[in-house]
Design a protein around this nucleic acid. Structure first.
Length: 432
DNA sequence: AATCCGGGGTA
DNA sequence: TACCCAGGATT
């Protein structure tokens, strides 16, 4: 690679960017807090998706101090639907660090910015270059693709070591005094011209010296090893309908403080029988394509699933419900996981007389009745209430602390992952 | 170095 | 359908 080709690249790309850059809300000024928020939102997320979220977020949390002081639930609600919710929690933690350690001002200091929660090598480089015009590289997926093609680099960009070497290359290309524009130019080219598939070489400002294209390899670059496919999981979810004082409401619960979808709200649900166990059966293993209609599930299986769902919630969470009917299905795709969510309508509370009658009819139901009875006794030991008064458990049973009854008007107070948003919105429409 | 963490656009 | 995306934290 010649020095001339590199200088040509930087010069032409910078000129192209200054003529063609998009008007975006985070390009109004160089407020480092605004840049920071935009860069975090843009992690693994497209510009068009981010824009409306960014507008709402900056309207609600215009400064690091405002974000630092906000209740976390409000921040999550503002992030609802955007995904990777740890970004929101880390961003707020970072804002709190800025307030407590840097007097509310994002520091013009690479080490200090890198130390902020949720700020990694890319985001640190982006903030330092775009907000402060410091000559730091900001290497994301776009930049790795553009540079892999232009310099015909055949290293696997899935390897961390490749990102490090490309960072050194990117740093060497930054024109004097133009770090912010140049880094954005690299990403803008990757987003608008040097796209993953069918790159627009004919409109590319640096096509003339692109080594990847000259080698005829622009379509196979960058080299990237494939990720493992996500594993499928069956989830059984309960739309628990309230009665009495909770008529018209349904039951939701909050997830734990850590792990998947931390502190988000959801329908109570459990993991279904493992996929592996299902495939051990003599059923034909048909791979269902996403978007295709599911195989019809036999009523027998529906009843088994309802039963497992009710018994498990009673046994593990002390939530007493009884099955009503199958409601529908929803899919939720994570990067490493696919949930097949089967949703069942259930009623809150459990009538002991009914359970006793069922005891004679079915061994499975007998198990549930026995468990429910035990749970009921556990709940009412303290009060010494006679079991006969269990008919309206609705008003007697207390819920675990992470459970809430909500109506449609309460949706704006809780942050849900998309799959439960879809289910709940559709459900509220049908009950109206 | 591998895994976990969402969701949506694209060809 | 497969791939990709303005990645970072954890282990």
């Amino acid at each position: 690679m010649t020095t001339e080709a590199a200088e040509y690249f930087s010069r032409e790309l910078l000129g192209w960017y200054r003529q063609n850059k998009r008007v975006l809300p985070w390009r109004m000024n160089r407020d480092p807090y605004r840049i920071w928020v935009s860069e975090v939102m843009l992690q693994q997320t497209r510009v068009d998706t981010v824009i409306p979220y960014y507008e709402r977020f900056m309207d609600k949390f215009p400064t690091a101090e405002a974000l630092a002081e906000a209740p976390e639930a409000e921040v999550l609600k503002c992030w609802e639907g955007l995904g990777y919710y740890s970004r929101a929690r880390n961003l707020q933690a970072g804002a709190q660090e800025v307030v407590s350690r840097h007097d509310g001002v994002v520091p013009d200091d690479k080490a200090a910015v890198s130390a902020l929660r949720g700020v990694g090598p890319y985001t640190a480089g982006a903030i330092m270059s775009i907000a402060f015009n410091r000559p730091e590289p900001a290497v994301d997926g776009n930049v790795m693709r553009v540079l892999s093609r232009y310099f015909c680099l055949e290293d696997d960009i899935a390897k961390p070591s490749t990102r490090v070497s490309i960072e050194k290359l990117a740093a060497s290309l930054i024109p004097e005094g133009a770090a912010g524009d140049f880094n954005q130019a690299l990403m803008e080219l990757g987003a608008l011209v040097c796209t993953p598939k069918s790159p627009g070489c004919l409109t590319c400002p640096v096509m003339a010296h692109c080594e990847g294209r000259m080698a005829g390899k622009e379509h196979i670059l960058p080299i990237k090893t494939k990720a493992k496919p996500p594993r499928p999981e069956l989830r059984l979810a309960a739309l628990v309908t309230g009665t009495g004082s909770h008529a018209g409401k349904i039951l939701i619960r909050q997830r734990p403080d850590t792990g998947l979808l931390a502190r988000m709200w959801e329908l109570p649900h459990i993991a279904g029988p493992s996929i592996a166990a299902a495939e051990d059966s003599d059923m034909p293993k048909k791979r269902r394509r996403a978007g295709a209609k599911a195989e019809p599930v036999p009523q027998r299986v529906r009843e088994e699933q309802m039963d497992i769902l009710c018994r498990t919630l009673a046994g593990e969470e002390r939530v007493l419900i009884r099955p009503t009917s199958w409601w529908g299905e929803a899919e939720h795709v994570f990067s490493h996981l696919v949930w097949d969510v089967q949703v069942y309508i259930t009623e809150f509370g459990f009538m002991l007389e009914e359970a006793a009658a069922a005891q004679e009819a079915s061994a499975l139901l007998a198990d549930r009745a026995a468990e429910a009875h035990a749970v009921y006794a556990w709940q009412h030991d303290a009060g010494n209430e006679p079991a006969a008064e269990a008919a309206e458990a609705d008003n007697l049973a207390s819920l675990p602390a992470n459970y809430r009854w909500i109506g449609p008007e309460d949706m704006s107070n809780y942050a849900f992952p998309n799959v439960f948003l879809r289910i709940l919105r559709e459900y509220w429409e049908t009950v109206d």
